[in-house]
Computed example of a mutant assay.
Amino acid sequence: RDNDLFVHDIDKGLETALTDDGSDTILNGTLSWVYWEEIFDRQDIGYWWSDDAKSIAYFQTDESPVPIAHFVDFKPAVPNVITQRYPKAGMANPVVRLGIIDVTSRRTTWADLGEFEYLVRVNWLPTSDRVSVQTLNRPQDELDLFYVDRETGESTFVLKETDAGWVNVHDDLTFLDDGAHFIWQSERDNYAHLYKYTLDGALVNQITAGEWSVRSAGGNPRKTIAAIDSKKDWIYFSALEKSSVERHLYRIHSDGSGMQRLTNGDGAYSVHFSPNGKYFTAQFSNIGTPPGLSLYKNDGTKIKDISRPNIELAQEMDFHSPELFEIPTRDGFLMPAEILKPKDFDPSKKYPVIMNIYGGPSAPTVTNVWSRAHYFDQILSDRGYLVVR
């Protein structure tokens, strides 16, 4: 509240302020616009409780170097003017540092991380004595992973990721139950894959491999690990192994052996596991089939259908689906694409074309899935347009 952090004791009904220097430009535990939009996927994630509930790691942001921009809010009948700290290309970013506050004493220890431009991820180690922190440089081609001691703020370097283009931030850092290893995602071989490390940052082995990438299939768009069964050494993850326009669930042992695909059919799955990892729900659809939801055992055995695809409604709406195809690029890459044609399409006629392109990195718009974007495309198609993505 008011850019400060508070704790509320539910049993005692007592509220305590942990910070008291929040202002228009000093933000404690809440994000600036650029962090909210570009780093944390439009979620206000600015503080993290330790597992023992004794400490909170939090961002303190100084927005004073960031220029103020003005926008007209056109939604009201009488437009408003919105002011916002907005760093344009090449201008100053907000200055962010990581504090670790003891909930009882209200004492903050500041993390010593050296020079960096962005703080991009924070994860407590299960022992709660250290917190992992990921930093990026401004060109976003070097990412460093550190452990920070919660008592002293001293940092220990763990590993570095580099890329000639940019390093994609992920949420696959997972500390294993043995207390000696973690799982990490990297694109060092030009494909996003999972790797096993010792806790101090020594590579043990590559877990997934091949000319395909792991890819989120539900929930967090930057997290591909869906669950881990430590007792049986299974890592459950989603990937593009079958097709770059499909999303499927797989499992594999941490040494890279025994990989199995657990979902079937041509299309895309959105998967969520039960807390104990024994079951998962999977929403399945493809470009011509509306979504259906089913319950499975963690070995891929279907238990029951929870909700079947509403094909009748799609037929009642006279919904027609796009066609998937590929466009060869100059370097030989077959770029996935789709085209929606009018119902009465005549190949001998010329039609106006609307080409819908999103140029952002790691953000494909063509997937073999029943997409809400296709509803508006129906309106365009019914008015005689070809719609291409």
Rank of each mutant, 00 (worst) to 15 (best):
98 L>A: 02
74 F>A: 11
75 K>M: 10
91 M>G: 09
125 L>C: 08
89 A>N: 06
106 R>W: 06
72 V>M: 13
115 E>A: 05
95 V>D: 10
97 R>Y: 07
119 L>R: 00
68 I>Y: 15
111 A>D: 01
108 T>Y: 15
66 V>D: 07
125 L>H: 14
101 I>K: 03
118 Y>M: 12
87 P>S: 05
83 T>Q: 08
120 V>E: 03
94 P>L: 05
95 V>R: 09
118 Y>T: 04
86 Y>F: 09
128 S>W: 01
119 L>M: 12
109 T>W: 02
115 E>Y: 01
88 K>D: 01
87 P>G: 05
65 P>S: 13
114 G>W: 00
79 P>N: 02
68 I>Q: 14
69 A>S: 15
109 T>A: 06
77 A>D: 14
83 T>H: 05
71 F>V: 10
109 T>R: 00
126 P>A: 11
107 R>D: 04
86 Y>W: 08
80 N>C: 00
128 S>L: 06
85 R>G: 02
105 S>Y: 00
107 R>L: 08
87 P>H: 03
126 P>M: 11
117 E>S: 12
110 W>G: 01
113 L>E: 01
128 S>F: 04
82 I>K: 12
119 L>C: 11
124 W>P: 12
104 T>E: 01
88 K>I: 01
65 P>I: 12
112 D>N: 09
128 S>V: 05
106 R>L: 06
117 E>G: 11
65 P>T: 13
119 L>A: 13
122 V>A: 14
78 V>M: 11
115 E>Q: 10
125 L>W: 06
116 F>C: 06
123 N>R: 14
128 S>C: 11
116 F>D: 02
108 T>A: 12
73 D>N: 13
85 R>T: 10
120 V>Y: 06
124 W>F: 14
102 D>N: 11
95 V>Q: 14
110 W>T: 07
89 A>D: 11
96 V>Y: 02
82 I>C: 09
112 D>K: 03
75 K>V: 09
80 N>T: 05
102 D>G: 05
84 Q>Y: 10
96 V>F: 02
80 N>R: 06
75 K>C: 05
116 F>A: 07
92 A>K: 06
93 N>M: 02
78 V>P: 12
75 K>N: 10
96 V>G: 00
114 G>K: 01
123 N>K: 15
65 P>E: 12
66 V>L: 06
82 I>P: 00
103 V>E: 08
113 L>C: 04
102 D>T: 08
65 P>F: 15
119 L>N: 10
111 A>I: 03
100 I>A: 05
65 P>L: 07
100 I>T: 01
125 L>T: 09
86 Y>T: 00
79 P>W: 00
83 T>V: 11
98 L>N: 01
124 W>A: 14
69 A>T: 15
84 Q>C: 11
89 A>R: 05
98 L>E: 03
121 R>P: 05
65 P>V: 12
85 R>K: 13
128 S>D: 07
88 K>S: 00
77 A>T: 13
105 S>R: 09
77 A>P: 00
108 T>W: 15
117 E>Q: 09
84 Q>F: 02
103 V>H: 06
118 Y>R: 05
96 V>L: 04
96 V>D: 05
81 V>K: 10
89 A>L: 13
106 R>N: 13
125 L>R: 10
67 P>F: 10
71 F>S: 08
69 A>Q: 15
